[in-house]
Amino acid sequence: MTTHPSRLMIRVAAILTLGLGAGTVLGAVSPLELVAPVADYKLYVAENSRKLVTDVRNFTAAVKAGDIEKAKQLFAPTRMSYERIEPLAELFSDLDSAIDSRADDHEKAEQDPAFGGFHRIEYALWVEKSTKNVGPVADKLLANVVELQKRLTALTFPPEKVVGGAAVLMEEVAATKISGEEDRYSHTDLWDFQANFEGAYKIVELLRPLVAKQDQAFADKTDANFKVVFDTLQKYRTPEGGFQTYEKLTDRDRKLLAGRVNTLAEDLSRLRGMLGLN
């Protein structure tokens, strides 16, 4: 069981460590005003990393028990906690590549011994239809998410990484996910999309009072674009609360999502500057 520091303590810590040397400030946002949203975001990350550890524990247990059906069911929901906090998780590149790299990040693709993490297990479950080769991969995945949680707890959140994280998530979806290449064996990409958008929206939500003060039209437009994105994904919900497979996404909806994601990426790329961050 992990405990997390109280919100107040985090805020105090954040005030002490923000550095606040943000240089010239674009508008009226004072660096101190970022303390509360950054602290709240740290709580959000703590919640998600805690849930990630719990979910990965269950997921890897199923893998190791050879329960392919159960492992397949747990794969997509387990990933969501990771996908929500990806901008921060990615700060630890050794862990990110061990947890979430894809076959084409490796020279010998699926056959590469260095290919591990979620997608190696996904390959075992959906393509190899066997878990006999991935017991050690499962152990390592669990160890890595435990380590990730430890490092995230110890991390002083750089405000520019938090604020910039919303745009980072959009860039990721726009560049390498909208095509359906992330979960290429399971086609559970829509779960990842949902989690990425939730993670980005959380940041925007926490910053909204500051953003609205700077540019109300920007805040409204961003909200409207997020609404289209969530509404579009909602059409692909299953009665059980999950998502249909990526292939069900119509061409028109894929393009619509791409357009909104590009627009959000374009708009959110201004967020850091708008809040006076480097």
């Binding site: 393009k255 357009g259 590009n262």
Partner: peptide
């Protein structure tokens, strides 16, 4: 492309 993100893909 930069000026038409919500209009063109």
């Amino acid at each position: 492309i930069k000026n038409t993100p919500d209009l063109l893909v």
